[in-house]
Write a protein that binds this DNA or RNA. Structure first.
Length: 424
RNA sequence: GGAGGGAUGGCAGAGCGGUCGAAUGCGGCGGUCUUGAAAACCGUUGAUCGAGAGAUCCGGGGGUUCGAAUCCCUCUCCCUCCGCCA
Protein backbone atom coordinates (compact mmCIF):
# COMPACT_ATOMS: atom_id res chain seq x y z
CA UNK A 1 0.00 0.00 0.00
CA UNK A 2 1.19 3.49 -0.75
CA UNK A 3 1.23 6.28 1.80
CA UNK A 4 -1.95 8.32 1.39
CA UNK A 5 -0.22 11.56 2.27
CA UNK A 6 2.41 10.73 -0.34
CA UNK A 7 -0.29 10.37 -2.98
CA UNK A 8 -1.77 13.66 -1.81
CA UNK A 9 1.45 15.62 -2.14
CA UNK A 10 3.04 13.79 -5.09
CA UNK A 11 0.01 13.18 -7.23
CA UNK A 12 1.79 13.75 -10.53
CA UNK A 13 4.55 11.27 -9.79
CA UNK A 14 1.99 8.67 -8.80
CA UNK A 15 0.03 9.21 -11.99
CA UNK A 16 3.19 8.90 -14.06
CA UNK A 17 4.15 5.73 -12.24
CA UNK A 18 0.79 4.15 -12.97
CA UNK A 19 1.23 4.99 -16.62
CA UNK A 20 4.69 3.40 -16.63
CA UNK A 21 3.25 0.30 -15.01
CA UNK A 22 0.83 0.17 -17.91
CA UNK A 23 -2.05 0.10 -15.46
CA UNK A 24 -4.72 2.36 -14.07
CA UNK A 25 -5.38 3.24 -10.46
CA UNK A 26 -8.31 5.20 -9.03
CA UNK A 27 -6.17 8.15 -7.96
CA UNK A 28 -8.81 10.80 -8.57
CA UNK A 29 -11.39 8.90 -6.62
CA UNK A 30 -8.94 8.36 -3.79
CA UNK A 31 -8.11 12.05 -3.54
CA UNK A 32 -11.77 12.96 -3.65
CA UNK A 33 -12.71 10.49 -0.92
CA UNK A 34 -9.74 11.54 1.15
CA UNK A 35 -10.79 15.15 1.07
CA UNK A 36 -14.34 14.24 1.97
CA UNK A 37 -13.08 12.04 4.76
CA UNK A 38 -10.82 14.67 6.25
CA UNK A 39 -13.55 17.26 6.12
CA UNK A 40 -15.97 14.99 7.99
CA UNK A 41 -13.26 13.94 10.39
CA UNK A 42 -12.51 17.47 11.48
CA UNK A 43 -16.21 18.20 11.99
CA UNK A 44 -16.77 15.06 14.01
CA UNK A 45 -13.64 15.64 16.07
CA UNK A 46 -14.71 19.14 17.02
CA UNK A 47 -18.07 17.82 18.18
CA UNK A 48 -16.43 15.03 20.11
CA UNK A 49 -14.10 17.46 21.81
CA UNK A 50 -17.10 19.50 22.92
CA UNK A 51 -18.91 16.45 24.21
CA UNK A 52 -15.82 15.24 26.06
CA UNK A 53 -15.27 18.47 27.94
CA UNK A 54 -18.91 19.00 28.81
CA UNK A 55 -19.38 15.39 29.85
CA UNK A 56 -16.48 15.80 32.22
CA UNK A 57 -18.13 18.83 33.80
CA UNK A 58 -21.58 17.29 34.17
CA UNK A 59 -20.95 15.28 37.37
CA UNK A 60 -19.68 18.42 39.15
CA UNK A 61 -22.72 20.51 38.42
CA UNK A 62 -24.97 20.98 41.41
CA UNK A 63 -27.93 22.78 39.89
CA UNK A 64 -30.24 20.03 38.59
CA UNK A 65 -31.80 22.26 35.95
CA UNK A 66 -28.50 23.25 34.44
CA UNK A 67 -27.40 19.66 34.59
CA UNK A 68 -30.46 18.44 32.72
CA UNK A 69 -30.16 21.09 30.08
CA UNK A 70 -26.51 20.19 29.44
CA UNK A 71 -27.37 16.51 29.20
CA UNK A 72 -30.07 17.34 26.68
CA UNK A 73 -27.64 19.46 24.73
CA UNK A 74 -25.05 16.74 24.68
CA UNK A 75 -27.62 14.25 23.54
CA UNK A 76 -28.13 16.51 20.56
CA UNK A 77 -24.40 16.73 19.95
CA UNK A 78 -24.28 12.95 20.13
CA UNK A 79 -26.95 12.73 17.47
CA UNK A 80 -25.02 15.06 15.22
CA UNK A 81 -21.89 12.98 15.69
CA UNK A 82 -23.80 9.87 14.78
CA UNK A 83 -25.12 11.44 11.60
CA UNK A 84 -21.62 12.25 10.41
CA UNK A 85 -20.27 8.88 11.49
CA UNK A 86 -22.87 7.07 9.45
CA UNK A 87 -21.41 8.69 6.38
CA UNK A 88 -17.81 8.62 7.51
CA UNK A 89 -17.70 4.86 8.01
CA UNK A 90 -18.48 3.84 4.44
CA UNK A 91 -16.29 6.64 3.09
CA UNK A 92 -13.32 5.35 5.04
CA UNK A 93 -14.10 1.81 3.95
CA UNK A 94 -14.33 2.75 0.31
CA UNK A 95 -11.07 4.64 0.58
CA UNK A 96 -9.33 1.66 2.19
CA UNK A 97 -10.63 -0.62 -0.53
CA UNK A 98 -9.31 1.66 -3.24
CA UNK A 99 -5.95 2.09 -1.52
CA UNK A 100 -5.53 -1.68 -1.48
CA UNK A 101 -5.89 -1.70 -5.26
CA UNK A 102 -3.06 0.69 -6.00
CA UNK A 103 0.14 -1.11 -7.00
CA UNK A 104 3.57 -0.25 -5.67
CA UNK A 105 5.61 2.54 -7.23
CA UNK A 106 8.50 1.28 -9.36
CA UNK A 107 11.98 2.25 -8.23
CA UNK A 108 13.71 4.93 -10.36
CA UNK A 109 16.21 2.32 -11.51
CA UNK A 110 13.54 0.19 -13.21
CA UNK A 111 13.57 0.49 -17.02
CA UNK A 112 10.32 1.77 -18.47
CA UNK A 113 8.70 -0.70 -20.81
CA UNK A 114 5.34 -1.92 -21.99
CA UNK A 115 5.53 -5.65 -21.32
CA UNK A 116 7.87 -8.60 -20.89
CA UNK A 117 9.39 -8.09 -24.33
CA UNK A 118 11.12 -5.01 -22.91
CA UNK A 119 12.64 -6.74 -19.92
CA UNK A 120 16.39 -6.43 -19.64
CA UNK A 121 18.70 -9.44 -19.73
CA UNK A 122 21.40 -8.37 -17.30
CA UNK A 123 23.69 -11.37 -17.63
CA UNK A 124 23.49 -14.74 -19.28
CA UNK A 125 25.56 -17.92 -19.12
CA UNK A 126 27.60 -18.37 -22.25
CA UNK A 127 28.32 -22.05 -22.25
CA UNK A 128 25.14 -23.99 -22.61
CA UNK A 129 25.52 -27.76 -22.29
CA UNK A 130 26.46 -29.47 -25.56
CA UNK A 131 25.28 -32.92 -26.59
CA UNK A 132 26.35 -35.32 -29.30
CA UNK A 133 22.79 -36.58 -29.44
CA UNK A 134 19.44 -34.86 -29.44
CA UNK A 135 18.60 -34.04 -25.80
CA UNK A 136 15.11 -35.07 -24.81
CA UNK A 137 12.49 -33.34 -22.63
CA UNK A 138 12.05 -34.36 -19.00
CA UNK A 139 8.57 -35.77 -19.50
CA UNK A 140 10.01 -38.47 -21.76
CA UNK A 141 13.04 -39.20 -19.59
CA UNK A 142 11.06 -39.04 -16.35
CA UNK A 143 8.47 -41.49 -17.52
CA UNK A 144 11.05 -43.84 -19.03
CA UNK A 145 13.09 -43.90 -15.83
CA UNK A 146 9.95 -44.44 -13.76
CA UNK A 147 10.63 -41.35 -11.65
CA UNK A 148 7.63 -39.29 -12.75
CA UNK A 149 4.15 -40.76 -13.06
CA UNK A 150 1.94 -38.33 -14.94
CA UNK A 151 -0.99 -40.64 -15.57
CA UNK A 152 -1.62 -41.60 -11.99
CA UNK A 153 -1.13 -38.02 -10.83
CA UNK A 154 -3.93 -36.96 -13.13
CA UNK A 155 -5.99 -39.97 -12.08
CA UNK A 156 -5.99 -39.01 -8.42
CA UNK A 157 -6.05 -35.19 -8.67
CA UNK A 158 -6.68 -34.10 -12.24
CA UNK A 159 -4.73 -32.10 -14.75
CA UNK A 160 -1.51 -30.36 -13.65
CA UNK A 161 -0.78 -32.99 -11.00
CA UNK A 162 1.93 -35.64 -11.12
CA UNK A 163 3.64 -38.10 -8.86
CA UNK A 164 7.37 -38.21 -8.23
CA UNK A 165 8.58 -41.73 -7.62
CA UNK A 166 11.71 -43.53 -6.49
CA UNK A 167 14.84 -41.52 -7.39
CA UNK A 168 12.63 -38.69 -8.65
CA UNK A 169 11.10 -38.15 -5.23
CA UNK A 170 14.46 -38.66 -3.62
CA UNK A 171 16.18 -36.19 -5.94
CA UNK A 172 13.67 -33.49 -5.06
CA UNK A 173 14.16 -34.17 -1.37
CA UNK A 174 17.92 -33.96 -1.83
CA UNK A 175 17.68 -30.59 -3.61
CA UNK A 176 15.47 -29.19 -0.86
CA UNK A 177 17.90 -30.25 1.85
CA UNK A 178 20.86 -28.96 -0.14
CA UNK A 179 19.30 -25.54 -0.67
CA UNK A 180 18.19 -25.15 2.95
CA UNK A 181 21.65 -26.10 4.18
CA UNK A 182 23.27 -23.65 1.78
CA UNK A 183 21.08 -20.75 2.86
CA UNK A 184 21.31 -21.46 6.57
CA UNK A 185 25.00 -22.38 6.76
CA UNK A 186 26.53 -20.06 4.21
CA UNK A 187 24.09 -17.27 3.44
CA UNK A 188 23.01 -16.44 7.00
CA UNK A 189 19.32 -17.30 6.87
CA UNK A 190 17.29 -18.71 9.75
CA UNK A 191 15.13 -21.62 8.75
CA UNK A 192 11.42 -21.61 9.54
CA UNK A 193 8.68 -24.10 8.84
CA UNK A 194 5.42 -22.15 8.57
CA UNK A 195 1.77 -23.16 8.14
CA UNK A 196 0.61 -23.83 4.59
CA UNK A 197 -2.81 -22.42 5.38
CA UNK A 198 -3.26 -18.87 6.62
CA UNK A 199 -5.96 -16.40 7.54
CA UNK A 200 -7.24 -14.00 4.98
CA UNK A 201 -5.52 -10.94 6.58
CA UNK A 202 -2.18 -12.46 5.65
CA UNK A 203 -3.06 -12.38 1.98
CA UNK A 204 -3.88 -8.70 2.28
CA UNK A 205 -0.60 -8.12 4.05
CA UNK A 206 1.56 -9.51 1.27
CA UNK A 207 -0.72 -8.30 -1.53
CA UNK A 208 -2.32 -11.45 -2.98
CA UNK A 209 -5.68 -10.04 -1.95
CA UNK A 210 -7.83 -8.34 -2.97
CA UNK A 211 -6.59 -8.39 -6.59
CA UNK A 212 -5.58 -12.00 -7.06
CA UNK A 213 -8.27 -13.98 -5.28
CA UNK A 214 -8.70 -16.04 -8.46
CA UNK A 215 -5.36 -17.72 -8.09
CA UNK A 216 -5.77 -18.79 -4.46
CA UNK A 217 -7.21 -22.02 -3.16
CA UNK A 218 -9.25 -21.53 -0.07
CA UNK A 219 -11.44 -23.28 2.43
CA UNK A 220 -14.79 -21.62 2.79
CA UNK A 221 -15.78 -23.27 6.03
CA UNK A 222 -12.92 -21.91 8.12
CA UNK A 223 -11.80 -19.13 5.78
CA UNK A 224 -8.29 -20.52 5.57
CA UNK A 225 -6.20 -19.90 2.47
CA UNK A 226 -3.66 -22.28 0.97
CA UNK A 227 -0.42 -20.44 0.44
CA UNK A 228 0.76 -19.78 -3.11
CA UNK A 229 4.22 -19.05 -1.76
CA UNK A 230 6.05 -19.15 1.58
CA UNK A 231 6.36 -15.38 1.26
CA UNK A 232 2.85 -15.15 2.70
CA UNK A 233 3.25 -16.90 6.07
CA UNK A 234 6.86 -15.86 6.57
CA UNK A 235 6.34 -12.15 5.88
CA UNK A 236 3.25 -12.17 8.06
CA UNK A 237 5.13 -13.68 10.99
CA UNK A 238 5.90 -10.13 12.06
CA UNK A 239 2.57 -8.58 11.17
CA UNK A 240 1.55 -5.75 13.52
CA UNK A 241 4.86 -5.87 15.32
CA UNK A 242 7.33 -3.13 16.17
CA UNK A 243 10.83 -4.51 16.32
CA UNK A 244 14.02 -2.96 17.60
CA UNK A 245 16.43 -1.59 15.06
CA UNK A 246 19.01 -4.01 16.43
CA UNK A 247 16.78 -6.93 15.40
CA UNK A 248 17.32 -6.01 11.76
CA UNK A 249 18.09 -7.38 9.32
CA UNK A 250 16.15 -10.61 9.68
CA UNK A 251 16.74 -13.31 7.07
CA UNK A 252 14.43 -16.31 6.89
CA UNK A 253 14.40 -19.28 4.59
CA UNK A 254 11.52 -21.72 4.40
CA UNK A 255 10.68 -24.84 2.51
CA UNK A 256 6.98 -25.19 1.73
CA UNK A 257 4.59 -26.59 -0.79
CA UNK A 258 2.83 -23.90 -2.82
CA UNK A 259 -0.67 -24.02 -4.25
CA UNK A 260 -1.83 -22.06 -7.25
CA UNK A 261 -4.96 -22.23 -9.28
CA UNK A 262 -3.18 -21.05 -12.45
CA UNK A 263 -6.41 -19.72 -13.85
CA UNK A 264 -4.76 -17.00 -15.86
CA UNK A 265 -2.37 -19.52 -17.38
CA UNK A 266 -5.11 -21.96 -18.37
CA UNK A 267 -3.88 -24.21 -21.16
CA UNK A 268 -0.31 -22.93 -20.87
CA UNK A 269 2.60 -25.25 -20.04
CA UNK A 270 0.42 -28.29 -19.59
CA UNK A 271 3.18 -30.68 -20.62
CA UNK A 272 5.56 -31.98 -17.98
CA UNK A 273 6.08 -30.62 -14.49
CA UNK A 274 6.78 -27.00 -15.33
CA UNK A 275 3.52 -25.57 -14.05
CA UNK A 276 1.43 -27.50 -11.51
CA UNK A 277 -1.27 -26.60 -9.05
CA UNK A 278 1.04 -27.79 -6.30
CA UNK A 279 4.79 -27.39 -6.23
CA UNK A 280 7.61 -27.16 -3.75
CA UNK A 281 9.80 -24.16 -3.21
CA UNK A 282 12.50 -22.94 -0.89
CA UNK A 283 11.96 -19.27 -0.24
CA UNK A 284 14.15 -16.50 1.15
CA UNK A 285 12.53 -13.57 2.98
CA UNK A 286 14.26 -10.49 4.37
CA UNK A 287 13.20 -7.71 6.73
CA UNK A 288 15.62 -4.80 6.54
CA UNK A 289 16.18 -1.13 7.23
CA UNK A 290 14.99 1.06 4.35
CA UNK A 291 18.38 2.50 3.47
CA UNK A 292 19.85 -0.97 2.95
CA UNK A 293 17.12 -2.58 0.91
CA UNK A 294 18.65 -2.16 -2.55
CA UNK A 295 21.94 -3.71 -1.41
CA UNK A 296 19.97 -6.45 0.30
CA UNK A 297 18.18 -7.17 -2.96
CA UNK A 298 21.51 -7.65 -4.72
CA UNK A 299 22.73 -10.12 -2.12
CA UNK A 300 19.39 -11.93 -2.18
CA UNK A 301 19.70 -12.28 -5.94
CA UNK A 302 23.22 -13.53 -5.55
CA UNK A 303 22.03 -16.13 -3.04
CA UNK A 304 19.57 -17.42 -5.63
CA UNK A 305 22.20 -17.46 -8.36
CA UNK A 306 24.55 -19.27 -6.03
CA UNK A 307 22.20 -22.25 -5.97
CA UNK A 308 22.36 -22.42 -9.77
CA UNK A 309 26.13 -22.09 -9.80
CA UNK A 310 26.59 -24.90 -7.33
CA UNK A 311 24.20 -27.16 -9.16
CA UNK A 312 26.04 -26.40 -12.38
CA UNK A 313 22.98 -24.99 -14.07
CA UNK A 314 23.54 -22.27 -16.68
CA UNK A 315 21.33 -19.33 -15.85
CA UNK A 316 20.58 -15.75 -16.69
CA UNK A 317 19.24 -12.77 -14.79
CA UNK A 318 16.41 -10.70 -16.19
CA UNK A 319 15.29 -7.35 -14.85
CA UNK A 320 11.58 -6.68 -15.13
CA UNK A 321 10.64 -3.47 -16.87
CA UNK A 322 7.85 -1.33 -15.42
CA UNK A 323 5.18 -3.01 -17.53
CA UNK A 324 6.08 -6.50 -16.27
CA UNK A 325 6.55 -5.61 -12.60
CA UNK A 326 4.28 -7.43 -10.19
CA UNK A 327 1.65 -5.59 -8.18
CA UNK A 328 3.69 -5.40 -4.99
CA UNK A 329 7.27 -5.07 -6.24
CA UNK A 330 9.27 -1.87 -6.61
CA UNK A 331 12.11 -3.76 -8.28
CA UNK A 332 12.20 -7.34 -9.50
CA UNK A 333 14.81 -9.65 -10.98
CA UNK A 334 14.10 -13.12 -12.31
CA UNK A 335 16.63 -15.93 -12.41
CA UNK A 336 16.08 -18.27 -15.32
CA UNK A 337 17.75 -21.60 -15.85
CA UNK A 338 18.46 -23.24 -19.18
CA UNK A 339 16.76 -26.56 -19.84
CA UNK A 340 18.40 -28.43 -22.72
CA UNK A 341 15.50 -30.78 -23.49
CA UNK A 342 12.66 -28.34 -23.93
CA UNK A 343 15.18 -25.67 -24.99
CA UNK A 344 13.74 -23.01 -22.77
CA UNK A 345 14.88 -20.57 -20.13
CA UNK A 346 12.82 -21.50 -17.08
CA UNK A 347 12.03 -18.99 -14.35
CA UNK A 348 13.28 -20.54 -11.12
CA UNK A 349 13.41 -17.47 -8.94
CA UNK A 350 11.91 -14.06 -8.69
CA UNK A 351 13.71 -11.66 -6.36
CA UNK A 352 11.85 -8.53 -5.34
CA UNK A 353 12.25 -5.50 -3.18
CA UNK A 354 8.83 -4.41 -1.96
CA UNK A 355 10.23 -1.50 0.01
CA UNK A 356 7.57 -0.46 2.55
CA UNK A 357 4.60 -1.58 0.43
CA UNK A 358 3.97 -4.86 2.22
CA UNK A 359 5.18 -3.51 5.57
CA UNK A 360 2.56 -0.77 5.46
CA UNK A 361 -0.18 -3.26 4.62
CA UNK A 362 0.96 -5.70 7.27
CA UNK A 363 2.04 -3.16 9.91
CA UNK A 364 5.65 -4.31 10.23
CA UNK A 365 7.76 -1.59 11.80
CA UNK A 366 10.95 -0.99 13.72
CA UNK A 367 11.94 1.60 16.26
CA UNK A 368 15.06 3.53 15.26
CA UNK A 369 17.90 3.11 17.76
CA UNK A 370 18.24 6.85 18.28
CA UNK A 371 14.57 6.95 19.30
CA UNK A 372 11.65 8.53 17.57
CA UNK A 373 8.64 7.18 15.77
CA UNK A 374 8.52 3.62 14.52
CA UNK A 375 9.17 3.28 10.80
CA UNK A 376 8.12 0.68 8.31
CA UNK A 377 10.73 -1.93 7.48
CA UNK A 378 11.47 -2.90 3.93
CA UNK A 379 10.59 -6.45 2.95
CA UNK A 380 12.19 -8.54 0.22
CA UNK A 381 11.88 -12.04 -0.99
CA UNK A 382 13.06 -14.42 -3.63
CA UNK A 383 12.77 -18.06 -4.48
CA UNK A 384 15.78 -20.06 -3.57
CA UNK A 385 14.63 -21.94 -5.68
CA UNK A 386 11.47 -23.45 -7.18
CA UNK A 387 11.79 -27.23 -7.22
CA UNK A 388 10.01 -28.50 -10.34
CA UNK A 389 11.98 -26.36 -12.73
CA UNK A 390 15.26 -27.20 -11.06
CA UNK A 391 14.26 -30.84 -11.43
CA UNK A 392 13.59 -30.24 -15.12
CA UNK A 393 16.93 -28.54 -15.64
CA UNK A 394 18.86 -31.28 -13.85
CA UNK A 395 17.07 -34.09 -15.66
CA UNK A 396 17.46 -32.48 -19.05
CA UNK A 397 20.94 -30.95 -18.75
CA UNK A 398 22.52 -33.94 -17.04
CA UNK A 399 20.99 -36.57 -19.32
CA UNK A 400 23.22 -39.10 -21.03
CA UNK A 401 22.87 -40.76 -24.42
CA UNK A 402 21.51 -43.91 -22.79
CA UNK A 403 18.71 -42.00 -21.06
CA UNK A 404 20.32 -42.04 -17.63
CA UNK A 405 20.96 -38.92 -15.55
CA UNK A 406 24.15 -37.89 -13.78
CA UNK A 407 23.49 -36.42 -10.35
CA UNK A 408 25.20 -33.03 -9.74
CA UNK A 409 28.09 -33.46 -7.35
CA UNK A 410 26.76 -31.24 -4.56
CA UNK A 411 23.63 -33.37 -4.34
CA UNK A 412 25.37 -36.73 -4.01
CA UNK A 413 25.91 -36.52 -0.25
CA UNK A 414 22.15 -36.01 0.02
CA UNK A 415 21.53 -39.11 -2.09
CA UNK A 416 23.66 -41.49 -0.11
CA UNK A 417 26.54 -41.11 -2.53
CA UNK A 418 24.50 -42.13 -5.54
CA UNK A 419 25.96 -40.70 -8.77
CA UNK A 420 23.41 -41.54 -11.42
CA UNK A 421 19.74 -42.29 -12.00
CA UNK A 422 19.22 -45.16 -12.31
CA UNK A 423 21.89 -46.25 -9.87
CA UNK A 424 24.56 -48.29 -11.65
C1' G B 1 -17.45 -31.55 19.48
C1' G B 2 -19.40 -30.43 24.96
C1' A B 3 -18.77 -27.42 29.71
C1' G B 4 -16.49 -23.40 32.11
C1' G B 5 -12.86 -19.20 32.55
C1' G B 6 -10.26 -15.30 30.28
C1' A B 7 -8.24 -11.24 26.63
C1' U B 8 -5.85 -4.24 29.76
C1' G B 9 0.76 -0.55 27.96
C1' G B 10 7.53 -4.35 26.16
C1' C B 11 6.14 -8.18 30.06
C1' A B 12 3.39 -9.23 34.66
C1' G B 13 -0.96 -7.42 36.76
C1' A B 14 -4.96 -3.70 39.29
C1' G B 15 -9.24 -1.23 37.56
C1' C B 16 -15.64 1.57 41.14
C1' G B 17 -20.10 3.97 34.51
C1' G B 18 -17.41 10.11 35.21
C1' U B 19 -11.39 12.99 38.04
C1' C B 20 -8.41 6.38 33.50
C1' G B 21 -4.33 6.52 28.33
C1' A B 22 -5.12 3.72 32.58
C1' A B 23 -2.56 1.92 39.72
C1' U B 24 1.53 -1.21 40.98
C1' G B 25 5.78 -4.34 39.93
C1' C B 26 9.46 -5.79 36.35
C1' G B 27 12.07 -4.40 32.12
C1' G B 28 13.98 -0.10 29.04
C1' C B 29 16.03 4.90 28.94
C1' G B 30 18.19 9.35 31.59
C1' G B 31 20.28 11.15 36.14
C1' U B 32 22.39 11.23 41.40
C1' C B 33 26.00 8.39 44.06
C1' U B 34 30.74 5.42 42.51
C1' U B 35 37.66 5.04 40.15
C1' G B 36 34.14 1.75 37.30
C1' A B 37 30.03 -1.43 38.07
C1' A B 38 26.16 -3.31 41.24
C1' A B 39 22.74 -1.74 44.90
C1' A B 40 19.90 2.42 46.41
C1' C B 41 17.37 6.83 45.19
C1' C B 42 15.09 10.45 41.58
C1' G B 43 13.01 11.15 36.89
C1' U B 44 11.26 9.18 32.36
C1' U B 45 9.08 5.38 29.28
C1' G B 46 2.66 3.08 24.10
C1' A B 47 0.44 3.87 19.13
C1' U B 48 -2.32 6.41 15.01
C1' C B 49 -4.06 11.01 12.66
C1' G B 50 -3.02 16.30 13.01
C1' A B 51 1.03 22.35 11.80
C1' G B 52 -1.59 22.83 16.34
C1' A B 53 -5.77 22.61 19.32
C1' G B 54 -7.39 18.19 19.70
C1' A B 55 -9.35 13.31 18.24
C1' U B 56 -8.90 7.97 18.40
C1' C B 57 -7.04 3.23 20.53
C1' C B 58 -7.81 -1.22 27.15
C1' G B 59 -8.71 -8.50 21.47
C1' G B 60 -12.29 -7.12 16.69
C1' G B 61 -17.25 -5.29 15.40
C1' G B 62 -22.01 -3.40 17.03
C1' G B 63 -25.29 -1.37 20.97
C1' U B 64 -26.99 1.28 25.73
C1' U B 65 -25.53 6.25 27.98
C1' C B 66 -24.72 13.25 28.44
C1' G B 67 -20.33 10.02 29.46
C1' A B 68 -17.88 2.97 28.66
C1' A B 69 -11.61 -0.39 29.92
C1' U B 70 -15.97 -0.83 33.16
C1' C B 71 -23.04 -2.59 31.16
C1' C B 72 -25.42 -5.53 26.80
C1' C B 73 -24.95 -8.32 22.00
C1' U B 74 -21.66 -10.64 18.60
C1' C B 75 -17.12 -12.48 16.44
C1' U B 76 -12.08 -14.04 17.06
C1' C B 77 -8.29 -15.91 19.96
C1' C B 78 -6.24 -18.12 24.51
C1' C B 79 -6.59 -21.30 28.97
C1' U B 80 -8.82 -25.48 31.98
C1' C B 81 -11.77 -30.02 32.10
C1' C B 82 -14.28 -33.90 29.20
C1' G B 83 -14.69 -36.36 24.43
C1' C B 84 -12.09 -37.54 19.82
C1' C B 85 -7.76 -38.00 17.21
C1' A B 86 -1.84 -38.24 13.74
Amino acid sequence: MLDLSYIRSNTDQVREAMKALNTTAPIDEILELDEKRREMLSRVETLRAERNTVSKEIPHIKDPHEKQSLIAKMRQVGDEIKIIEVELGPTQEKLDTLMMQVPNMPDESVPVGLDESENLILRQAENLPQFDFEPRPHWELGEELGIIDFERGVKISGTRFYILKKDGARLQRAIIAFMLDLHTREHGYIEVYPPYMVRRECLYGTGQLPKFADNQYHDDEDDLWMIGTAEIPVTNMYRDEIMDETDLPIYHTAYTACFRREKMSAGKDTRGIKRGHQFDKVEMVKFVKPETSMDELMSLLDNAEDVCRRLGLPHRVVQMCTGDLSFTAAVKYDVEVWAAGCKEWLEVSSCSNFKDFQARRAGIRYRPAEGGKPEFVHTLNGSGLALPRIMIAIIENYQQADGSIVIPEVLRPYMGGQTTIPEL
